[in-house]
Design a protein around this nucleic acid. Sequence first.
RNA 1: GGCCCGUUCGUCUAUCGGUUAGGACACCAGGUUUUCAACCUGGGAAGAGGGGUUCAACUCCCCUACGGGCUGCCA
Length: 466
Amino acid sequence: MNSPIVTRFAPSPTGYLHIGGARTALFNWLYARGRGGKFLLRIEDTDRERYTPQATEAILRGLQWLGLDWDGEVVSQFDRRDRHAEIAHDMLQRGTAYKCFSTQDEIAAFRAEAEARGSYAVFQSPWRDADPATHPDLPYVIRMRAPRTGETVIEDQVQGTVRFRNDQLDDMICLRSDATPTYMLAVVVDDHDMGVTHVIRGDDHLNNAARQTMVYDAMGWTVPVWAHIPLIHGPDGKKLSKRHGALGVEEYQAMGYPAAGMRNYLTRLGWGHLDAEIFTSAEAMQMFDLPGIGRAPARLDFKKLENTCGHHMAMGDDAALLQELAAFLHVTSRPALTETQTALLLNAMPFVKTSAKTLPQLVEKARFALESRPIGRDAAADAALDPVSRGILKTLTLHLQHASWLKSALEPILNAAAAAAGIGFGKLAQSLRAALAGRTASPSVYDMMLVLGRDETLARLADAAD
RNA sequence: GGCCCGUUCGUCUAUCGGUUAGGACACCAGGUUUUCAACCUGGGAAGAGGGGUUCAACUCCCCUACGGGCUGCCA
């Protein structure tokens, strides 16, 4: 039982890395990385009609963004088709598979008839026990000779023991009539050849696991440990679909969620360990285990995602955050920060990162530091002391009266500013308001002083007042 | 239709027969604050329904309801 653990993520390239797929990949990654095992990546591209190289690229990009690094080369299932065919013929040789000459029309007719009778039966090929001498010279598929009695038992780490009656399972097709392998055969062959010890995948595959077990048995291979995890649902509890928006992880990246927060949230979605809520990936690796995965589908909650991301933003390394921001600006085709801005932001980072939950919020909160003139001036509006200015003035006055520590910090500055600008205190309050006006993310004067320094803060206030 | 899986606060979850059923997000109230945010304090909020088993059930079993998956020469 000390053999190294090997997990894999095996998406089909259908356009992008689905958020549910990302979580599946994350669980596999966490499990392998937390136990010194390997995490492999295989693209299930046997359906050539739907395959596009761009889709594969999108999946790799998504995994890279999330920081889910895989071991070795990316395996293309399509490239291994000869090996799959070889196994199909091997099974034929062993008698665990047979040639079936039934056409798709015949099978469709069989199903239509069963449906007409109001029942449903698994298709039973008349060729299963036919004498090879009677085989016609026609296209055929290779079907597995599945046991028709007894039951196939799946020991699932998440779902527990699941039993399937063998008479409910049909003789699945392993090799199509055009000699290409089916997914059912390919997964088993690939997982075996790649040395996969733990198959962690969506529970839409739970039923498939039974038939796949038969292939393992037919070949005398060791059946991997199964873990079928529930799918993620939309906020309304329904299956995730286009109307929920944000299906691909790249859309989450574009919304500015930091990868670390994304990983944390996705880990907690459908998995729990005591009261653990906010943790690093390293900590998650220590805690993560298969039986801890929930059995019911979990709903996506953007509010919690954002909150989780906020925690990671606040505890993130300043320089690393800056790098992630740069990547974010790049993928969203926004202008990159200049060198000067980068330096300014790095300086302001400790103060702004604690109140930002996403990357764009980080920029917004830091505007006071990045822009020399935080506002566009409106002389006409500044001329009159409006209710807001009066409010600020009143508040400032109150502080100066009641908060000695604040008074000692602010009073000299305000007085100096007023003197320097050649204006009175009221006018200064007005300029302060102007400097901060229209901002939903304006900094406090304290932030400005801490980041910009007294002189610069002073200069800007005066500048805004002139 | 058949087979399979699931069901604890609005949401994500803890509990692995004995708890005032815990935490987090969200929400509400209060505090702090130049605004928003952040932050602090407090509050309301849950075992789908019905049968068993047991001294004791959210935890085990059965039924029902609801939700989901599979039932392809798709993956």
